[in-house]
């Protein structure tokens, strides 16, 4: 839309600010995809804007349209994640692929991510049990001042030193408890935000 499409300066400013937000959100996409998304959002805003023409003022109409669209980061996130993953696959860019998968997990699979984090807590429990049954092979190992490993090590050299001893057990237990409460707190936040969004969208 252009400045000429508006009678109200305020309505135009609301529109321009929102479009700027969209541009920033999709800045990492290639030119064609950027253009396509920008044009589609622009077209959507225009179609929504010209409906209800008789009922509301331009400013109110634009505010309603923008409010209904919502934060561009929220609704463009799944599209961005898919496009970025596609670019990375096309370029055989491993780092990009990993980032794309991570983004997709975050958009649609918060619970998958959370599940993996919960599974990590189990590893703390396993470490505690391993320390009881294999005290010499389980712990925090260093060699010549360098980190060798944390956990169960089968092949240990004479130079390898285990640092924590039986302190590993309380440290693991306390870490697991803290980690558990932290993840649960995050999960609760996600559920609260999702519920609020669902209510705001009045149905879907």
């Amino acid at each position: 839309m252009k400045r000429n499409d508006f009678n109200s300066v305020k309505a135009y400013r609301i529109y321009a600010k929102y479009i700027e937000q969209v541009k920033e959100t999709i800045a990492r996409l290639d030119k064609d995809d950027m253009q396509d998304i920008m044009s589609e959002i622009d077209s959507h805003i225009y179609e929504s804007f010209i409906s209800n023409k008789k009922i509301l003022s331009e400013e109110e109409r634009m505010e309603t349209v923008i409010r209904h669209l919502g934060n561009p980061e929220s609704y463009l996130r799944p599209i961005l994640a898919e496009k970025q993953l596609k670019y990375a696959i096309n370029k055989y860019n491993l780092w990009g692929i990993l980032k794309g998968f991570a983004a997709l997990l975050l958009t649609g699979g918060q619970y998958v991510t959370i599940t993996i984090l919960y599974l990590l807590i189990l590893s703390g429990g396993i470490l505690t049990i391993a320390k009881i049954f294999y005290p010499d092979k389980t712990g925090l190992f260093i060699e010549d001042g360098n980190f060798v490993g944390l956990g169960y090590l089968s092949g240990i050299n004479a130079e390898t030193i285990e640092l924590l001893g039986y302190w590993l057990i309380p440290i693991s237990v306390v870490s697991c408890v803290i980690f558990y409460f932290f993840i649960t707190f995050i999960l609760k936040k996600i559920v609260t935000i999702k519920t609020k969004l669902n209510l705001r969208n009045r149905g879907i």
């Binding site: 589609e40 959507h44 669209l69 919502g70 609704y75 799944p78 898919e82 596609k86 969208n201």
Partner: peptide
């Protein structure tokens, strides 16, 4: 009667296109 938000419809259309 479904009151669908834009944030729901466009990702689905994009997915169907892909």
């Amino acid at each position: 009667g479904f009151d669908i938000s834009e944030g729901t419809i466009y990702p689905i259309l994009n997915r169907l296109k892909e």
